[in-house]
Design a protein around this nucleic acid. Structure first.
Lengths: 231, 231
DNA sequence: CGCCTGATTGATAAGTATCAAGGTCGGTGG
DNA sequence: CCACCGACCTTGATACTTATCAATCAGGCG
């Protein structure tokens, strides 16, 4: 099986440029700058289930998702995984780790996936030539921080049912109403156990908010009820 | 009582400069640049218990703590407060909100406090003239994000006792072993209730990790046990 | 066909929040 | 100066939420 190992692959420059353009931070780069960045980017293929980097590894490269889904997560001391982001085309993987020298999340391919890898040195060179990017990164990090503050407040102050509703809403806003993920993935994202997530989903099904679309899939019928969820 | 209302006060330029220099982001500014920034900074006094801004307010100013303690927190929909940071001399208050236009935390003076207020426009002007600051801000935000990821992982994967230990360790690392805070403040910081925090503290006292130093105070005897805490 | 992965449900236990009832200390006003 | 009051701390009993453990079921694939 060709897809069973991690390897660099060929990708047309236009495909690389397309992925870079999907990333908000690079929106304001000139065509020339984008081309220059693309020329530094190596496409790498990761088979489903393989990891791209691990929490604690030295952060040497900038990664951008080009194809497939990549889970960014972290494990607690006692072994529980929490998923923080599911990256797809144009999303950066733990980019901010570059500035503090170590990845602080782990990245794992949820499907066969391709990423663009850019050496940290090249990435910073582009940033220093285009100060607008730094400002944009600050904006993204700020929004990310805000999102995590909200998540903490919800974990502490709200019950699981609400958090699952929020998780489904967030994921559906990004990926559409037909989510391709396992119950376990949803549970890790919502910060609960698989069984509890299933129980909540059962209740949601009875309320007509979702229909379970078979193994590894959840179909959302009523996005609005998820957004303003109350028991 | 003079300290009972919010008001701008006089502060020598050298006191302002001293506070600015405590802030890591401004470390690399030239003396001239620091002086220029100081000249834009208005010192404002807030009596204990008053708020400086609220979650959701338009973010128009950059604030830097100059004196006293300021709690940065957020309330859940159901009314529970979570404290994210206790700011003191040289700490910024929710600075990153400037880039997304609204404060996403609330700031309240835990003691009588003085802050330096700089209009957002002036702040960005300095940043744009000194690109190194932007890079530094990215580093700080990244570390902040990392810290919040860890906090989430701990909330989900570890029990309260561990989280209280971590909270005490973090606070003691910043403020020293004699913490001046109420049980309720600690509880909000650790993401639990006052009663539960007290029970945990009782156990810690029996183990000789702390001594309760009276109302509104906790004295830490064994910092190392807190750092590597296991039940 | 049988195995493996994922989904589901039930029973139980553990961890915390909640509710309730004092207790202590320091400051304030009579 | 002393009594009182309010804020804070403490402990106990109980309820609730959610994790854990266990058993079963369904479907795809070799």
């Amino acid at each position: 099986l060709r897809s069973s190992r991690t390897r660099t692959i060929k990708l047309s420059e236009s495909d690389k440029i397309k992925a870079l353009k999907e990333c908000p931070s690079f929106k304001l780069l000139s065509p020339n700058a984008i081309r220059a960045l693309a020329s530094q980017a190596t496409p790498v293929h990761y088979p489903k289930g393989s990891y791209i980097f691990n929490d604690g590894d030295p952060a040497e490269c900038f990664y951008l998702a080009q194809d497939g889904l990549i889970k960014l997560y972290k494990a607690s001391r006692s072994g529980k995984n929490v998923t923080f982001k599911i990256a797809s085309l144009g999303d950066t993987l733990n980019a901010s780790a570059l500035s503090i020298k170590r990845y602080f999340l782990s990245a794992e391919a949820m499907t066969d996936a391709t990423v663009l890898r850019i050496p940290g040195r090249e990435f910073w060179a582009v940033v220093s030539r285009h100060p607008g990017i730094a400002v944009d990164i600050i904006g993204q990090l700020s929004r990310g921080l805000d999102a995590e503050y909200n998540r903490i407040v919800n974990i502490i102050g709200e019950e699981v049912e609400f958090r699952v509703a929020q998780s489904l809403y967030t994921l559906a806003s990004k990926f559409g109403p037909n989510l391709q993920l396992k119950r376990e993935d949803l549970a890790n994202y919502a910060g609960t156990t698989t069984e509890t997530a299933i129980r909540v989903l059962s209740r949601f099904r009875k309320k007509g908010i979702i229909t379970s679309a078979g193994r590894g899939a959840i179909a959302i019928c009523n996005l609005e009820k998820l957004q303003n969820y109350r028991k």
